[in-house]
Design a binder for these strands. Structure first.
Lengths: 195, 195
DNA sequence: TTTCGAAAACCTAACCGTTAGTGTTACGGT
DNA sequence: ACCGTAACACTAACGGTTAGGTTTTCGAAA
């Protein structure tokens, strides 16, 4: 029950990293579909079972970089300045995420993902899970009184904004447009108040 | 180039139906995961390759009934009364779809789908495809001037409404709530006009 | 009616992601 | 120094899916 801070953990992390690196290298080199799990395992000098001990699926190998996506979304809600309205905080974070994934460095990976239906499907389903976490974070905000349905809806809309904006010709302009809509959707859920 | 209305088509449709029936029967009887593709093919007295000539995947077997979902959504837009506003037409159709799938008869299938991550994932990704078709239908409406991003956004929101409402304790009340939000989102996209 | 092209179905054998079962090694706490 | 266990390895399989090539069945033109 002690704090686990030893060589064991470092080795584990190193193995994981070695697998992810090998996978990405091979995928970008030969294409996602042309590379088998056994190839990746061999390249990383690791048993297939070990690979699956670190990654739940072949697709998960591709989204190693996105691991903090979910966390960043929920933190944008929970860690925002006191009394800062929800939607602008969401907008700011989603904008950062969109910028991050439309940066030049991420282009080859994006091309790979867009080229594989399996990867696109996996990503969308991952985002839906993120939306659920986000909904929970919103629902837990003591400053908000909206019901579960509204929270889940806004969370889903925010994640939609991310994927829609990413695919638009001008991502940032699209994000502006979508968040104007989300803002309006959120406004009509406020409890009636005078003024 | 003649009109294909012969026995051939009937036999093909019959085979497809036979496979779908066998699949659903076995799935409901033993559970989705406990039934293999080879079992279904044997039960339908058909070769495995034939099965995959009719259905793209194992999951597709489950959603045979939903085949018109996409079509109904787009028709709700294209076939609505002249000058009928978009969002209420969408709302009406989504409500009908929600009612249809929360009906008592569909309960065993719903339970099966909810119990299998693979099926849930497949369904969500299917709905996203439907949202794309819906977006195209909306964008093609000559009475509307909104851009592609807005159309895709509203389409996505409408499909979200379907899946969120379905999972809510009171689906119809949830749908009301969500469509109030969608209506507001849509309103702010109108070109500025006096009155 | 006969003939012929093509669609539909068949069979076999594999491919590939994934998992179970079972050891083996290396670390961390006692 | 010792033991429990987490990490890794190896083999063999399972289950969805596809490739390859053959046979059957229909539709229509000759």
């Amino acid at each position: 029950m002690t704090v686990p801070t030893g060589r064991r953990e470092r080795k584990k992390a190193a193995t994981r990293q070695k697998i992810a690196d090998a996978a990405l290298r091979l995928f970008l080199e030969r294409g996602y579909d042309a590379v088998g799990i056994r190839d990746v395992a061999a390249e990383a000098d690791v048993a297939v079972t070990t690979l699956f001990a670190h990654f739940a699926s072949k697709e998960a190998l591709v989204f190693e970089q996105d691991r903090d996506f979910e966390h960043r979304l929920t933190r944008a809600v929970t860690d925002r300045a006191p009394h800062e309205p929800l939607v602008p905080a969401l907008r700011r974070e989603v904008l950062a995420l969109v910028r991050h994934c439309t940066a030049d460095g991420a282009a080859p990976i994006r091309r790979m993902v867009d080229g594989s239906p399996a990867l696109r499907e996996y990503e969308e389903s991952m985002r839906l899970r993120h939306a659920e976490s986000l909904a929970a974070a919103i629902a837990a905000d003591p400053g908000l009184t909206q019901g579960t349905t509204v929270c889940r809806t806004i969370a889903r809309f925010a994640v939609d904004a991310y994927s829609l904006a990413r695919e638009a010709p001008d991502p940032e302009a699209a994000l502006d447009e979508i968040f104007r809509m989300i803002e309006a959707a959120w406004e009509v859920t406020r409890p009636p108040r005078c003024g």
